[in-house]
Design a protein around this nucleic acid. Structure first.
Length: 498
RNA sequence: GGCGCGUUGGUGUAGUUGGUUAACACGCCGCCCUCUCAAGGCGGAGAUCACGAGUUCGAGUCUCGUACGCGCUACCA
């Protein structure tokens, strides 16, 4: 039977990087096995689900290059089927109506309430499965329901026995039935609940392998019980280790902000292939040689569930240090992609960045196309994100650029003589017949000798005069990239900064 | 509280069936290169493999216990 996997995010916010990784692994597994990758939006929580979130999920997947097969499924559209399934379970005697009035629970303290309730129950020796309605005669149950009395539907868990399944990542999982409560399938307002909905949809979508976060590991037993009650075949499960924050806590929007959002990476100049590559290495490693830079094709070829780890991965970043706003390895990997990607693939990304920064000019793809490509190629070596092209690289493309204060101090203000030297150099260079790296170098070195200063002084001063920066590519290449007229002008203008 | 899962340098990871100085990547430090900064090359610091027992001639690798972390536990998803 061919593999069918799905990614089933709930649209209650942006696409979380942990979710993005789940999507990636599902996609890789599907493509690797020649299977099918399905997408289902779990929008059953009407309160929290938003169309905007759904859009951002779709955008995020597209950005990562993860295309899905078949049509998109919205879980909310299947609510009637889920409800019917629950009711059929009542008919079959595998579930029962619970007429206990709904207990209001504040979202905030659930965890404490659960613990408190558990402590209380163990102190009093009460069995949490002792529901008075579990064995209500069907006739009475039907009668009360027909009379309009509200009820929830709970799955009837067997009193004795153990649930077990083999997780592809975590191995054999066992849990005693006594640990599992008669879980609610349908709320008293007849709203189907998560566990029921996932199972029903996965059955309907004929999902063969459920690959998802480890936070679902223990609940899997409950879901298996629902599969069995529904007499459906149980899929194979593979749980993925969680991605943790530096303090080992679960990565969350509330506590960690935008670093966990996939769109942040797109907006801050990441290359999809780089981020995807980084994500793949969180909780998974390929067998064999330690190659870490892998294309989508290579990832697909090497991906196996056996290579998935059991221990959680820490996503390392520090909000105290802007240079480490996200994981350093992710940043490094992005830089690696920027400097090694075929130029033809990089150019459109730089163009997109320029368009949003207001730096794009149509001539860059016509008469200045060659210059544009050459310049991008020249400066990409030391950039970390696409943003750097319009930031640090701004002076190559616009006269409206900032001077780095450190660069000013280090290269211009330290030597008073530069006030005369720079304009003089500008005049000399302006007279050059041919203006390219070798000719500028020859002229600048000759000039420095005549002036009796070190070439390095002029070179470094020129760098700041021409680019506003203290760092950059080989200076003579920079002169060529900036061009004769602009170079001369900027050298003269720089006198005022000395 | 109960149940489950995990624990190799700061982070991501390698460590075949237990066998010598625990490997790689990122980050950090130094040197080379050099007009700066990167890149690249070379080198270095950093891990008593969570801790404690046990099995064994020998354990990161097997067993048990402890600690710590995380997850689940809801008429949330």
């Amino acid at each position: 039977m061919s593999v069918r996997v799905r990614f089933a995010p709930s649209p209650t916010g942006y696409l979380h990087i942990g979710a993005a990784r789940s999507a990636l692994f599902n996609w890789l597994y599907a493509r690797k096995t020649g299977g099918t990758f399905l997408l289902r939006i779990e929008d059953t929580d009407v309160q929290r689900s938003t169309d905007e979130s759904t859009r951002s999920i779709l955008e995020g997947l597209a950005w990562l290059g993860l295309d899905y097969d078949e049509e998109l499924v919205f879980q909310s559209a299947n609510a009637d089927k889920h409800r019917a399934a629950a009711l059929s379970l009542v008919e079959a005697g595998r579930a029962y109506r619970d007429f206990t009035p709904k207990e209001e629970r504040s979202d905030k303290n659930v965890k404490q309430e659960i613990a408190a309730r558990a402590r209380l129950a163990s102190n009093e020796g009460t069995d949490h499965r002792a529901n008075p309605f579990r064995d209500l005669p069907p006739e009475e149950s039907n009668r009360r329901a027909e009379a309009g009395e509200p009820f929830a539907v709970r799955l009837k868990i067997a009193r004795e026995g153990r649930s077990r399944f083999e997780d592809a990542v975590y191995g054999l999982q066992e849990r005693d039935y006594s640990e599992i409560e008669d879980l609610v399938l349908l709320r008293s307002d007849s709203h189907p609940l998560y566990n029921l909905s996932v199972v029903c949809d996965d059955i309907e979508m004929r999902v063969t392998d459920v690959i998802r976060g480890q936070d679902h590991l223990t609940n899997t037993h409950k879901q298996i019980l629902i599969y069995e009650a529904l007499t459906a075949s149980v899929p194979r499960f593979a749980h993925l280790p969680l991605i943790l924050a530096p303090n080992k806590a679960k990565l969350s929007k509330r506590k960690h902000g935008e670093v966990v959002s996939l769109t942040t990476y797109r907006d801050r100049g990441f290359i999809p292939a780089a981020f995807r590559n980084f994500l793949a290495l969180l909780g998974w490693s390929s067998e064999g040689e330690g190659q870490e830079i892998m294309s989508l094709a290579e990832l697909t070829e090497r991906f196996t569930l056996e290579g998935v780890h059991r221990s959680p991965a820490v996503f390392n970043f520090s909000d105290a240090d802007p240079r480490q706003w996200t994981d350093q390895k992710a940043l490094w990997m992005n830089a690696e992609y920027i400097r090694t990607l075929p130029l033809a693939e990089l150019l459109p990304m730089v163009r997109a960045e320029f368009e949003s920064a207001g730096l794009w000019r149509d001539e860059y793809e016509t008469v200045r196309g060659e210059w544009f490509a050459k310049t991008v190629d020249l400066i990409r070596e030391r950039f970390y994100t696409l943003k750097d092209f319009s930031g640090q690289g701004r002076a190559y493309f616009s006269d409206d650029f900032e001077f780095d204060s450190g660069a000013d101090a280090k290269n211009l203000k330290k030597e008073p003589r530069l006030k005369e030297l720079l304009p003089a150099l500008g005049d000399r260079l302006e007279k050059l017949e041919t203006f390219d790296a070798p000719s500028v170098e020859a002229e600048l070195r000759a000039f420095s000798e005549e002036a009796g200063v070190k070439a390095g002084l002029l070179i470094n001063a020129s760098r700041t005069a021409l680019t506003g920066q203290a760092v950059g590519p080989s200076m003579f290449e920079v002169f060529e990239a900036v061009g004769q007229t602009r170079s001369a002008r900027r050298l003269r203008d720089a006198a005022s900064r000395v």
